[in-house]
Design a protein around this nucleic acid. Structure first.
Lengths: 264, 264
DNA sequence: AAGTGGTCTAGACCACATG
DNA sequence: ATGTGGTCTAGACCACTTG
């Protein structure tokens, strides 16, 4: 056991106006903690906004920001004219992000991208439908394999609109640049995109490329990007073996969220 | 072609104070649309907050709400002392919800839950570790199969803490009630939970139960719920064949977001 | 020094729900 | 009629960045 000159967890009861933390964050921490401690249980009504104003000596707008923050987190819900209430945990409200993927794609010394294919081909029926072009029209076809420490990590296949009147500028190739898509970068060509995640089996070809035994489960991550004219610009998918990726999410108040220091 | 007495898309340029839509929403729509139209491209600096105040005749706090809203959407980013900038689309910022699952679990006339097992067993090594109890300690074991229109949809297996001092109240059994977990309900016992999503192959047993051929890809959705003492209360997982579930997300400004009526 | 985002105030008015 | 959430104002002050 170790002596603790300052408490490990935050049992803050008042707003500290000298804190570097904004008042609305402090109040959110206080309420979040009270919910985590069971002071307020699912279904309970929280103190009204005016009560919170008087209790903590802050203005209505500041209380409102806190309420909105916690509502965005899915912890509470508001009903005009009735009050603010604590929500029970709901699986259907859980969200997971692609941060795990970002780490996967992150280039380092060990990372290596092998370009398997990069040429102009005729669009087949499915590709033409996805890219909203004529069947048989020319498209740029790209296939590549991403490895780390000699171990294949994922496989990527993509089809890009091929416009002979517009030379294939650097930026266009960058559309499928992995670092660019995941880390950010300014894709001034892309307006928006849709993603689709499924569970799938590796095909024999993919299993061979990825050096996995057959059968093998994998994630299928499909992407479709549109330009500023709302025309599809690129379509493709990543195949990521199950052992390389998993997604996590949380519902309710995690202990880490509730135990947040509020010191000066 | 059809005549359009009112424009299909929103080319609103001013804030309509008589609109039922709040000013901060209207401004968000205006800016979102300008970003979608390419008026502001990734990397561009947006007008400063004070400029927006004067341009649209609203107060700083209202502009701020709009800025925060768009920043939460991942469309723009702010830098204190420098300005507000349009972000390029980033895959790593996409988020997926579990709404699709909610529909899957939704009970209707066609839905049927078959209880395969429900008894007290001794915890094996893995279960004991997950539930943070002693190996061999008694736990409630539940297995069930959810079908719709005679077609198996998913398989669920769960282990619940068995506390002889606390009789198994209705609420505790409700912990794994499917409708409850997904649709909401007040789980006053559960404080928070963690979810883990993987891609997997059906085992022979699962394939048989779910009437799928082998091999077959599926989602493995693991859940671990904690009570208000931060002790694990239930651990388990859903097995959902690939053909029953997929997740979708969007990045950037989708046309639907930008085309939002702002009329009276 | 000037401009930017970030926070906050102390009220106001409205829409809604309840008794 | 009262209390609730929801929006908005017209400023203020601070922290930060840039020239």
């Amino acid at each position: 056991m170790v002596k603790e000159p300052q408490p490990l967890f935050n049992d803050q009861l008042e707003i500290d106006r000298d804190s570097y933390e904004p008042a609305y964050i402090q109040l959110a921490n206080i309420l979040r903690r009270q919910i985590a401690e069971g002071v307020f249980r699912p279904g309970d009504q929280l103190p009204s906004e005016s009560q919170l104003c008087h209790r903590y000596g802050i203005s209505p707008m500041t209380v409102r920001r806190t309420i909105n923050l916690l509502a965005d987190e899915g912890l509470i819900s508001t009903a005009q004219g009735r009050g603010t209430f604590v929500k029970g945990i709901e699986l259907s409200e859980a969200t997971f992000g692609l941060r795990e993927l970002k780490d996967l794609f992150k280039p380092d010394q060990q990372a290596h991208v092998k370009l398997l294919d990069a040429r102009v081909v005729s669009a087949d029926e499915r590709t033409a439908r996805k890219l909203e072009i004529a069947c048989g029209a020319p498209v740029i076809y790209i296939r590549r394999l991403f490895s780390r420490a000699e171990q294949p990590v994922f496989y990527h296949r993509a089809y890009l609109i091929y416009d002979p009147t517009r030379p294939i500028v650097e930026a266009e190739l960058d559309v499928t640049s992995l670092q660019g898509l995941f880390a950010g970068g300014n894709h001034s060509l892309l307006k928006f995109g849709t993603l689709n995640i499924e569970s799938t089996l590796l095909t024999n070809e993919e299993a061979e490329l990825l050096k996995r035994p057959y059968p093998c489960a994998a994630f299928y991550l499909e992407h479709l990007f549109y330009d500023y004219d709302d025309h599809p610009l690129s379509w493709g998918w990543f195949i990521i073996p199950a052992d390389c990726l998993h997604f996590t999410a949380q519902v309710g108040v995690s202990p880490r969220q509730a135990i947040h220091s509020g010191g000066k």
